[in-house]
Design a protein around this nucleic acid. Structure first.
Lengths: 211, 211
DNA sequence: GGATTATCTTGACAGTCGTCAAGACAGTGG
DNA sequence: CCACTGTCTTGACGACTGTCAAGATAATCC
């Protein structure tokens, strides 16, 4: 038997070969989790959708929670930069709204499974203590991601934002969630509706324009 | 063996004795579901928290989904009138905001398990086709419930609402969900924060006051 | 009261789950 | 070449799941 799972630390031989496998398993886990959700995605099914067998999971992870948390952290680390180009490349407030809307629509279209998994886990965290810390942390980084967009929008518009970051995030997240729900229900116009809604709501987040 | 479960129809003997037991089981199911969530609440555990044994569930319900859907429908039918007194009893816009905030805070405090269950089921509906119709329908009635508050608020304020019902609902639902998350995480101020946030956001939903 | 129905309990079924341990295999260092 | 360590597979365990069927109990009707 080799050394146990996550108690393994750098400094021993293969250094990051270990972490690379963890990420590889995380990738496969995300595929299955996005398909089936947290509760129905068994470790056997996750392993089946990978190059390995079901026993290997416990070689790289403490337990199912450890795998799931690592997986969603792994995903959100990439996902959190999704809107940075919107902030960087927009020269006017109108540009920003267009780019933001386009990215939101694309997210609904292309990454629906990942996001329904996120909402699943966030709800589970209210039941499962072990998920709470990771979820809270990720939610905070999402809030900061959204705030970069909103504050840049305020800057381009020349008016200060009138809402706190947490409020802006909660509102946009609510809209996004409804759109995802509609998309999951088969609505082909969910993304378009979301874009229009965001265009309506974003101006309300800034201090009123001087008359 | 008696007649099967839900294929039973009125017109036979006990008429509503059957439905009464269904509601009684739903009540017990809600207790367990609110405690454990959808995935971990087994039929045996639900029956244990009731006056009956685990086999009786299949006498009154087709399967687990049937029980869960009936339970959450049963709850939301009551819950959906929760804010009607806010609408009916408020004489001014300020009164309404106070009453609305107080009810929201009370809901977070007293009915947190029911609402985390609701968010759990709504997320599950994106994975489980069988939940989708019931969830969509309930979500619509919640939207209408919120809209009664918002439109009454607009009326008292003398300004028309500037948002569609779906947008108003999504925004407030997003705020409520964040508050519930914080409450579940142990924050003792979650309700108070929510009240303040709602006070900030509600005016933004109306057309700007004339200068 | 007896017969018939409705209701409820008990016990079992076929699966699935997370977890773990024993051993196979590969690669490396001596 | 041997020993050793890291990696992975296989098979098993106990527990739990939704579902169902057979029989006990209670209620109802003739």
């Amino acid at each position: 038997m080799g050394t146990p799972n996550t108690t393994r630390r750098r400094g021993v031989r293969p250094v990051d070969k270990f972490d690379a496998r963890r990420d590889q398993l995380a990738e496969s886990a995300l595929k299955t989790l996005g398909e089936l959700g947290y509760a129905r995605a068994s470790l056997r099914e996750i392993a089946n959708n990978s190059a390995f067998s079901h026993g290997v999971v416990h070689y790289y992870f403490e337990d199912k929670l450890d795998l799931v948390i690592h997986s969603v952290r792994y995903y959100k680390a990439r996902c959190v930069t999704r809107y940075d180009s919107v902030v960087a490349d927009s020269a006017t407030a109108g540009d920003l709204l267009d780019a933001f809307g386009a990215k939101l629509a694309q997210t609904i279209r292309d990454e629906a499974p990942m996001h329904r998994l996120w909402y699943d886990l966030r709800a589970q965290s209210m039941f499962e203590e072990g998920l709470r810390d990771a979820v809270t942390m990720i939610d905070k980084t999402l809030e900061e991601m959204i705030w970069r967009v909103v504050s840049r929008y305020a800057q381009l518009e020349g008016r200060p934002a009138a809402l706190e970051p947490s409020v802006a995030y909660a509102m946009l997240d609510g809209l996004f969630q409804q759109a995802l729900l509609a998309h999951a229900g088969g609505s082909p116009v969910a993304e378009g509706v979301l874009v229009a809604q965001v265009r309506t709501v974003m101006p309300l987040m800034l201090a009123p324009a001087a008359a």
